[in-house]
Design a protein around this nucleic acid. Sequence first.
RNA 1: GCGCCCGUAGCUCAGUUGGAUAGAGCAACGGAUUUCUAAUCCGUAGGUCGCACGUUCGAGUCGUGCCGGGCGUGCCA
Length: 589
Amino acid sequence: MQPVIDILDSRVAAAMKAATDQTDCAALVKPSANPKFGDYQANGIMALAKNLKINPRELAEKVVKKLNVDDICEIPEIAGPGFINLRLKKEFIAKSMLEINADADNRLAVDQVKKPQNVVVDFSGPNIAKQMHVGHLRSTIIGDAIARMLDFLGHDVVRQNHIGDWGTQFGMLIAYLKQENPEVIKNPDSVHIGDLEQFYKDAKQKSDDDADFNDESRKQVVNLHNHHKETIMVWQHIVDESRKHYQPIYDRLSVDLHKENERGESFYADRLADVVKALQKQNLAEESDGAICVFSEGFKNKEGQPLPFIIQKTDGAFLYATTDLAAIHYRINELKAKRIIYVTDARQKLHFQMLFAVTKAAGWAGDDVKLEHVTFGTVLGEDGKPLKTRSGENVKLKELLDEAVSRARGVVEAKNPELSEKEKENIANTVGIGAIKYADYSNNRESDYVFSFDKMLAMEGNTAPYMQYAFARIKSIERKAADKGVDIEKDLKGLKKLNLTDDAELDLGKHILRYAEAIEIAAAECRPNYLTTYLYELSQKFSTFYTSCPVLVAENEQRPTRLLLCKLTEKTIQHGLTKLLGIEVVEKM
RNA sequence: GCGCCCGUAGCUCAGUUGGAUAGAGCAACGGAUUUCUAAUCCGUAGGUCGCACGUUCGAGUCGUGCCGGGCGUGCCA
């Protein structure tokens, strides 16, 4: 089923073309700003009239005469300077709802794209041997949502977790582990780095205090680069142990990242020298103050001089720019990516602009490859400054999640003390984690936002619990129906005709139809907040419907329609939250 | 200095290539519960969209200048 807005847009565009003989007609159909203007409005008439230097209202009259939408809409109305207002017919809403109900693929009749693309989404990228902290939250969950949406739309999505598993700090860590736990060489599995943070700190401390240790660290770096067997084994152990810390975080967050998605810095280590050589060969890279740099057009430094993209330091070492170049080359040439989406904070904007410029200049990415930097703002504390602990350290992600779950637990205890221990625990987890994720998604990703447990866990407003509550209420209706001997599946399965009468029913029904539209725009712009806004409005409309339209005690002619509204709302909330945003739902709360 | 981003109701934020009277939530005030979870719903009030020019039939959205804040700007990532 094509989104209604797209059907209307192409119909209006066709009518514009027929009325004017112009080939390039943008209908600009949008949801109406105000219900009194109908459900959709076409805004394109004014612009076209202006180009043709004719009266927009007269043009609108002509277009409406050519416009054929009577299978979908009431008679179009012309209003204001030349808007065409479109109001959906009840029959069309009913027909579409039945179509969604009949979708056997469980995708709410949302079409897949006609031309799937190979899309690489690069997100999360935690540092090995350090705990994930609040700074990793946004990349991890926004990237996951983008990957989920594109995947659902039918694209071939490759998730890439560019973990920080290489670099000079590993010399220090390896040296430390070898000295403090020499048995790791014989039997790596016997040694567990229980507290990563402590391990890292201890190694750093030793490095500060002990000159001999530093020599050993440097030696290990060299060994690492030369793939010295024993060193690699210890390194591998550190990576594996680290994964034991971050994988559970992904699992708790319902983030679809696993070991096979990892293409960390180490993966590209052996390709870096070739990257530099290749760029030198093309005369793109040159030596400057001892470093190897690429100077792309349009980038200037403080003094107005060309700004370098440094790919090899004076001491011969490579940098993240080099790794990113190797990675982008790999993604285009080996993963066959046609679209690469980098989900990192906005501060790296310049870096990615330069990276993309070099990639294009080198001819690695042609016009058929789209490179995107999806940026996001900072998570702030209540004081308006980047969120930190009282002692000024980064807030650990694990602690953030624990706190949310524990607060959610408190709410469940207060609201629903009679639930079983197991149910309470499950609800606390689902609501707590969902609240954190949803709060992040619901903000425009480019803005900074203030982190507030109280607000994200509130049951009022645009929060995860509000939607989870709407879902739980529907589930409750279904349980009650079963008690009364109503077989919902059966009632809905053969449903052929609906009886939409109440405004609340129509309003909810129309919104259900717009799910595909919401996903389309959220995915196209990589903006999960478009989807959360949709889901919030859906839940609001459901709540209004719920208060004014009883379901189970409704007359026989009314009940199936209301049951279907419930069922489709339930499925849409569940699909949107769980499938696309990785936020779980609960039957009771 | 230069570049990028931000400035919308008391607070936290939306605002889909420029569209009609700028929207939510919280907080405030008033109402709704013998009925499917009131963790809800209905209503009232609240804004010179930082400021000033400009472009246009039309500007929160585009341009220029200014004010205020954040970030970035050659060997960290």
